[in-house]
Design a protein around this nucleic acid. Structure first.
Lengths: 395, 395
DNA sequence: ATGAAAGCGCTAACAT
DNA sequence: ATGTTAGCGCTTTCAT
C-alpha cells in the first residue's frame, strides 16, 4: 500500500505518471507529488566524514601529528607536513567544526540580530558584515526580532545557546529595556551595536551621523523655499529618532523657521502607521509645504498618500527621507534622501567585532563610536526645478 | 600613552570630551571615537556557562542522571527530575550545542543557499523557512552564491564543513553543472530545491507553477487586445525560464498569435542586462505591443525603459512580470504580475526538509515535487481600462 | 532509579 | 620530530 510521505494517508493517493522510470504518486490531501525510488541500494553509500584519525591511520602517524601538520605548527618535519596536507587534500578533509569549537570554546560563528531580514537596509548590512567575517572563516547566524521586544529577548538566548563568538545588534523599535543584552557581557561575548544602538551599554557602536544628516536634509528643503516643514519622527526610544529630530529642530532654528507642535508626529515605522501619519499631516488646516520623514519607507508612504490626495509633489509638497532605499529611485516622483552606506556600516561593525573577538584582553573596557556620514541625494520629491529627462517629453 | 585601538597609532589621537565619566579619544587616522574604560574589574566577571556537571555537583548526582532528567528519559524518579529541572531553570542552563552535536552527529542547523540575500523574493522565503524550522529548534545558516557558480561550489563546502543537517537550495543563474550538490548526498545530507531547481537530482523540490503562471500572464495580455507579445526570458539553464517560456509560447499558440523570433530575448537577470533587453525590444522596427518579463525586477526595468523612451504604458505597451515584488505596487504604472507566495514556498520547502531529516530511513529513495499556484495580480501596466483613483484626478 | 565508562573529533600540555 | 594523555560537554550503553 502506498502511503503519503507527508500525512501518511493511504486513500488520498493516486498514480500520476512516471518520472525517470519511477512511478509517481499524488496525494490530494497534501497537494503533493512524490516518487517512490528503488530503495537506493539499502545502505545509502553514506560516506562518513574524513577525520584526523583516518588520515593518521593511512599514514601510520598519530592524530596529534596530523593535527599539527595541518595547523602548520613549527615542530613538524617538512616531509610529514607535506604528506599529510596532500592526503588531506585528496580526501577532501574538513575539520569537524563542532569538535574544534568544543575543544577551543570558540564556534567561529557570529550572530546578528536585526528587526527584519526582509528589508533592504538590514539585508545589505548583513551582506557587508558577511563579506568581512567570511574571509576570516566565520559564519553568520541571523536572528530576527520582528520589531518585537519579546522576540529580541528570545534571540539573545538563542545566540547564547549557540555559543556565538560575538554579536551585531540593531535593536527593536519597541526596546526600552536593555537588560537582556548585558547577558552577552556576562559570558564574555562581545557585541557591537549598529544603526539602532543602545546608549547605556558600554560597547562599540556604528551609526551614521543622524543629527547632521537630518540637519542637511531639512536645509535642502529650506533651500527650496519651504517654510512650513513637518517631520514624521521615529519611535522616541530609538536614539536615531531623537538625533534626527534634533537635527530637524536645529535646522529650523538656524533659519528661524517655525516648528509648530502639530507638524511633528511620531511613527512606529510600520507601513500602516506611516500612512496614518502622512494623512494626519496632510489634513491639517495649516498644511505643511514639506515633510522630512525619518526614513525612506515612511517617506514613500508620504508620497503615495500625497498622490492619493492629489497633492502635487514637489510643487505643493516637498518630501525627503533617510537611507536611500532602492524603491526611492523608482517611485515617482523620486524620493530625495540621505543615503546610508549600508555595506560599509556592515563592514565596519563586523571589523570592530572581529577585533574584539581576536584581541579579547585588549578589547575589554573600551568603547568605540564610529560615525559614518550620510550623503544627500536630491531627487524630484524635493527639487522644484526638476526637469524630466528630455526624451520623456514626448509622452 | 594612548594608542588607537584600531591602528595602534599614538600620534593621531586627540581627546574628545567625556562620556559617562570616561575620557573619550578620537583617532583622526581611523575616524574613530573610543573610550578608555575603568579596566572593567580586571577579571571581567566572565561567567562560565553552566554545564551538566555543575548541576550534578550541586545536587550530588551524576552528570548522566542530570542529562536523563533533562531529556525526560523514563528511568528517572519524579522527584529527581523535578529537582534537576528546577535548578537548571534557576541557573539558566543551556545545553552546549556543540557537545550535543558532536555526540549525536547532528547540529540542528540547516543551510540555505540563495543567489542574493538582498532580494525580497529570497529573503521572504528564508523568513518562511526560518519560521518553520525554529519551532523545532533548528538554526539557519545562510550562504549567498551571488549568482556565481564558483561561489556556489564554495557554499556547498562551507555548509558541509559546518555539518548542517539539511540544505535548502535555489541555484545560481549560471549553474549548469550540478555535480557539487551530489556531495551532500554522499554524506547523507538531505537537500530540497526551491524555485530555481535542479531537475537531474532526485530530491524534493518546491516550485510555483511556472508554466501555468506564464500561460495565464500572457493570456491576460491577450485579453487586452495585444497581438505582438514579446518575452524577456531568463537564462536557459534555469528550469523556470524554460517553463515560463513554454507557457508563453503555448498561450500564443492557443490564440494563434505570432511568436516572432525577434520578440524573444534572454536576460541574465542582472539589472543592466534587463535594461539592455528592454531597449532591444523597444527599438525593433516591428515593435511589440506587450512584454512578458520573466520576473518583476526585469519587468520594472521594462517600465523604466519604456518611460524613458516616452512610450505610454499600458496604451502603447502592456507589461507583466512574475513574483510580485513590493516595488511592483509602487512603481508607476503599477506592474501586473503573477504573485508567488514566498513565505509559503519557504515553509513548504522547510517542512519537507525537516521530514527528511527526522525520518532519515523513510525519506531515502523518494522524491517530492510540490507545485504551488501563482496568483494573477492585474495592475495598470497591463490594464487598458485602468482608472486612476478618483481623488487623484485633481492633480 | 542511578551511575561508571566510553567516545564523538579535536587540540594543547607534556613526555619521549 | 613525533606520540601519549587528557579533556572540551554531552549522551548512550551497560552495569549496579
Amino acid at each position: 500500500m502506498i502511503k503519503c510521505i507527508r500525512c501518511k494517508k493511504v486513500n488520498s493517493i493516486s498514480k500520476a505518471g512516471k518520472v525517470r522510470n519511477l512511478q509517481r504518486y499524488y496525494c490530494r490531501h497534501c497537494n503533493l507529488h512524490f516518487t517512490k525510488g528503488p530503495a537506493l541500494d539499502k545502505e545509502p553509500a553514506r560516506k562518513a566524514m574524513v577525520t584526523l584519525q583516518d588520515i593518521a591511520f593511512k599514514l601510520g602517524l598519530s592524530a596529534t601529528t596530523v593535527s599539527k601538520a595541518l595547523l602548520n605548527k613549527p615542530d613538524i618535519s617538512e616531509a610529514t607536513r607535506k604528506k599529510v596536507q596532500e592526503l588531506a587534500g585528496q580526501l577532501d578533509y574538513r575539520p569537524n567544526i563542532l569538535a574544534q569549537g568544543l575543544r577551543k570554546s570558540k564556534t567561529n560563528v557570529i550572530g546578528i540580530i536585526v528587526p527584519e531580514l526582509n528589508n533592504n537596509f538590514f539585508s545589505s548590512i548583513i551582506m557587508g558584515a558577511q563579506e568581512i567575517v567570511s574571509v576570516k572563516g566565520f559564519n553568520v547566524l541571523i536572528a530576527q526580532s520582528a520589531e518585537s521586544y519579546d522576540t529580541e529577548v528570545a534571540n539573545v538566548k538563542q545566540l547564547i545557546a549557540n555559543r556565538v563568538d560575538g554579536v551585531l545588534i540593531s535593536v527593536t523599535s519597541e526596546t526600552k529595556n536593555f537588560e537582556h543584552f548585558t547577558t552577552f557581557g556576562k559570558y564574555g561575548i562581545p557585541i557591537v551595536f549598529f544603526n539602532r544602538i543602545c546608549e547605556s551599554i558600554d560597547t562599540p557602536k556604528v551609526v551614521v551621523n543622524d543629527y547632521d544628516g537630518a540637519f542637511r536634509a531639512v536645509e535642502q528643503l529650506i533651500g527650496q523655499g519651504c517654510t512650513r516643514i513637518a517631520h514624521i519622527a521615529g519611535p522616541n526610544n530609538l536614539l536615531l529618532s531623537k538625533k534626527r529630530l534634533e537635527g530637524y529642530r536645529d535646522a529650523l532654528k538656524k533659519h528661524q523657521l517655525p516648528a509648530k507642535e502639530e507638524w511633528l508626529v511620531y511613527c512606529d515605522l510600520s507601513q500602516e502607521n506611516a500612512k496614518a501619519c502622512a494623512r494626519q499631516l496632510l489634513s491639517l488646516r495649516r498644511k505643511p509645504d514639506a515633510i522630512f520623514a525619518v526614513n525612506d519607507p515612511v517617506g514613500i508612504q508620504v508620497i503615495l498618500t500625497g498622490k492619493e490626495n492629489g497633492i502635487r509633489i514637489p510643487e505643493e509638497l516637498c518630501v525627503i527621507g533617510f537611507s536611500n532605499d532602492p524603491v526611492s529611485g523608482i517611485i515617482e516622483p523620486g524620493l530625495s534622501t540621505m543615503a546610508q552606506p549600508t555595506k560599509e556600516i556592515g563592514r565596519a561593525a563586523a571589523g570592530i567585532l572581529l577585533d574584539m573577538i581576536e584581541n579579547k584582553p585588549g578589547a575589554a573596557g573600551l568603547s568605540v563610536l564610529k560615525i559614518i556620514d550620510a550623503e544627500l541625494i536630491v531627487r524630484k520629491s524635493s527639487d522644484k526645478n526638476y526637469r524630466d529627462p528630455i526624451n520623456a517629453v514626448r509622452s
